[in-house]
Design a protein around this nucleic acid. Structure first.
Lengths: 298, 298
DNA sequence: ATTAACCATAAGATATACTTATCGTTACAA
DNA sequence: TTGTAACGATAAGTATATCTTATGGTTAAT
């Protein structure tokens, strides 16, 4: 049995409606013999006649009448598929799984997600917050669509785009706030509190002090910037935080914030996605939304 | 935009399931390039990419994932259409509009409809009871599928098939039951009660007596055999009824039934349908059901 | 660095779908 | 009854789709 085709269904529907081969063919934009042949083909495929042809009328058989509503249903569903395609042509729809590192998420996400869901109301955003390494692994394996991390990532399969640059500020006890701001070399000799291993921000801070990340340090590592700032407030040491975190983290603690003189420690925040992703265009739009969002927290 | 095809949907579904062009092509019984091309065609038609191809994996895009269940729905509906066709291959299904003349309907239908719906449980039978002329008109115009009438009908567009032959019996008052049975010539001189104009049975009875149907007769015409028999019971005259009607009509009346001697008055009951109908085969089966049914009332 | 896996592309072959021209039947009118 | 118009089926040729095999290019693993 030859396969049924949507074309046959369309012709069948037209003929069922018009009851006239010539007119149905006209409406379908083909010649009458073409329609006759496709109807015949359909009838052969189904093994039953669909129309009864007499000199004056073309009538649906009982079976044809059974079929007609089903065929219309199918054609309508196909049209819906086309509509859906047209609709989601340029807008992001459906599920978007986005990863964010912990030293960005709490500061950037509130504003970002607001902008994002406003721009793409039909978007179903899933956020995953974990360290860069995990995000990249999940991204390359297709369990995430994009990630917001510190650049560079240097994965050959990933595309990376810069969102903004952000410098780090010193957080020290209020008591020390009148002391001169230490430079990188000074900092290396101070009690510098850092995030635990695996956070890129830890590496970036250490790099500023020209220290090796892998060296074992004192056990005062914290699991979040918030914890670190609280420790600083308790007079245990000093730390660095990204400028974006100032508002959220230093309000409630007894700490002072200071910018460094000269060469600034900083990081580049960007978004990455698989080079193979067909949504590159949309991701770039998301990047510009992120730029907007970042301005509200800087 | 080129048209979508069920073929593309089938390939899309296979690829969505297998996530691998080669295997999906195998399953679909085509070569891998053929599948690649159809998927590309589908993506072009819809204006959006459906799969993300990387070296190791073929993944549905968000849009593709939206699409997949819809496409499966459509394919399932198409399969249902095929099932429906297979199922109604040789059995009569759906609506059957059948006409019956009034001098057959009450006697034959009860048994016939029982057999019919037993044989074709999914058949939705509509019965129309009216005179031959109307039935034939409705039949030729497609408002009926078949009719049970007295033959011949002699409509060139209709096929007619005999079901059985049935003779007519005399109905007279019980008081006359000892008198000899009149012959056709005697009958012409008696007070013969008949159905009103338009009933073929009237014409057949008159033909037996060698009388012209169109001649105006006394106003004692009745609208149903039942009425005629009641009139006979009241001593107003005699009448003819088809043998099939004896059981139903003569039980409750004070009448006697007698068969004619020699040449029997009779009629041929048959079924007719449009020669163009594709259901001729099934109608012949119905005829044999009617033969069965008629035996139970003869 | 080589190989294997895998999807895309190219070129040619085959199958499908369409066109125009024409036939055969039916219904209606002269 | 005969001619005629309407209409669907059929035939023959052409265009278009679709498939095949062969091959290319990219990626990831040995």
């Amino acid at each position: 049995m030859v396969n049924l085709t949507l074309k046959q269904f369309r012709y069948f529907d037209a003929l069922a409606v018009h009851g006239h081969f010539g007119r149905a063919a006209d409406v379908s934009g083909i010649s009458q013999p073409a329609l006759s042949m496709q109807i015949k083909e359909l009838e052969d495929s189904l093994g039953s006649q669909l129309f009864e042809r007499s000199a004056r009328q073309v009538r649906l058989t009982a079976f044809g009448e059974d079929l007609a509503p089903r065929v219309r249903d199918i054609l309508r569903s196909v049209d819906e598929v086309e509509d859906l395609a047209r609709q989601s042509q340029n807008t992001l729809t459906g599920r978007l799984r986005i990863g964010v590192i912990p030293t960005i998420a709490p500061y950037l996400l509130p504003s970002f997600l607001g902008h994002l869901t406003h721009t793409y109301p039909t978007l179903d955003v899933h956020v995953r917050e974990t360290q860069t390494q995990t995000l990249i692994e999940e991204l390359t394996h297709g369990r995430l669509d994009a990630a917001i991390v510190a650049l560079p990532v240097s994965e050959p399969t990933l595309e990376e785009v810069t969102i903004f640059e952000e410098d780090f500020v010193l957080v020290r006890p209020v008591a020390d706030s009148d002391a001169p701001v230490p430079n990188a070399a000074d900092l290396a000799k101070m009690q510098l509190l850092l995030l635990e291993e695996g956070h890129c921000f830890r590496d970036q801070a250490l790099a500023f002090c020209s220290l090796r990340s892998s060296l074992p340090r004192e056990s005062m590592d914290g699991s979040s910037l918030s914890t670190l700032v609280q420790l600083v407030g308790a007079g245990i040491g000093v730390t660095l935080i990204p400028r974006m975190a100032i508002g959220v983290e230093t309000q409630s603690a007894n700490v002072a914030v200071a910018s460094f003189k000269g060469a600034q420690p900083k990081r580049t925040i960007g978004m990455v996605w698989r080079k193979t992703s067909p949504l590159a265009e949309q991701y770039r739009e998301i990047v510009s939304i992120l730029e907007q969002a970042s301005k509200t927290v800087r």
